Simulated assay, not measured.
Amino acid sequence: MNQYERLYDETEQVNVRFIGFVSEHGRYDFGIIYTQMFFGKPLVVSMQTGRSSLLSQDDIENLEDLQRVYNLRSRNEAEEVATFLRHNIPSFILESEAELG
């Protein structure tokens, strides 16, 4: 008997970018996985903690979520990471929005 319902099973070739930087609050190493899954949001993985999240430009603006998801110690640290991510996470338009616009 099948005990689960498969929601998706996709394989795709993706681009992965590894970026590390140092600020006054610490060292950060991220893997950014660019995929067409999940509405085109890249998967951003903190290499130090293993914590990850799907992020868009809008998601980056929520500093409290960034601080919680990536286990950042302070709001200042979250602001630094957000600034970095703003410059490294692409803006995107969903296909359905492009069709409407």
Rank of each mutant, 00 (worst) to 15 (best):
G50W: 06
R86A: 02
R73W: 04
F18C: 13
L72T: 07
R17A: 13
V81K: 01
A82W: 01
E97N: 14
D59W: 02
Q3A: 14
T35I: 12
L100V: 07
I33F: 12
K41W: 08
L7S: 03
F92L: 15
L85R: 02
D29K: 05
V14K: 01
E80H: 05
Y4F: 14
A78F: 03
E12F: 08
N71K: 15
E64V: 04
P42Q: 01
M1V: 10
D58Y: 11
T35S: 14
S74K: 09
I60Q: 03
I32H: 05
I32G: 05
E80M: 00
S53A: 15
M47Q: 02
M47F: 03
V16Y: 07
I19M: 08
P90E: 15
G50E: 00
Q67S: 04
V45G: 01
Y8F: 15
L66I: 01
K41G: 09
D65L: 11
T35K: 11
G31M: 09
Y70K: 00
R27N: 05
Q67Y: 03
V69D: 08
T11Q: 12
I32R: 04
G31V: 02
R73Q: 05
F84V: 04
N62W: 01
I19N: 05
I60N: 06
D59Y: 07
R68N: 10
Y70W: 06
I89A: 04
R68F: 09
V16I: 13
E5V: 13
T35L: 14
L43A: 13
S23V: 07
S91D: 12
E64H: 00
D65S: 12
F92E: 13
D58F: 12
S46F: 07
L94H: 11
S74A: 11
R68W: 07
S56I: 00
V22F: 08
S23D: 09
G31H: 01
S91Y: 11
V44I: 10
Q48C: 05
L43S: 13
D65W: 09
L66A: 04
I93T: 11
V81D: 04
Q3P: 11
V22N: 09
F39K: 08
V22I: 12
Q3N: 15
Y4M: 12
T83L: 08
V69C: 07
V22Y: 07
G26Y: 03
L85I: 03
I60C: 07
E80C: 02
V14I: 02
T11E: 12
V16E: 12
T49R: 00
F30P: 03
F92P: 09
R86C: 01
G26M: 06
L7Y: 01
T83Q: 08
Y8S: 15
S74H: 10
K41M: 14
T83H: 08
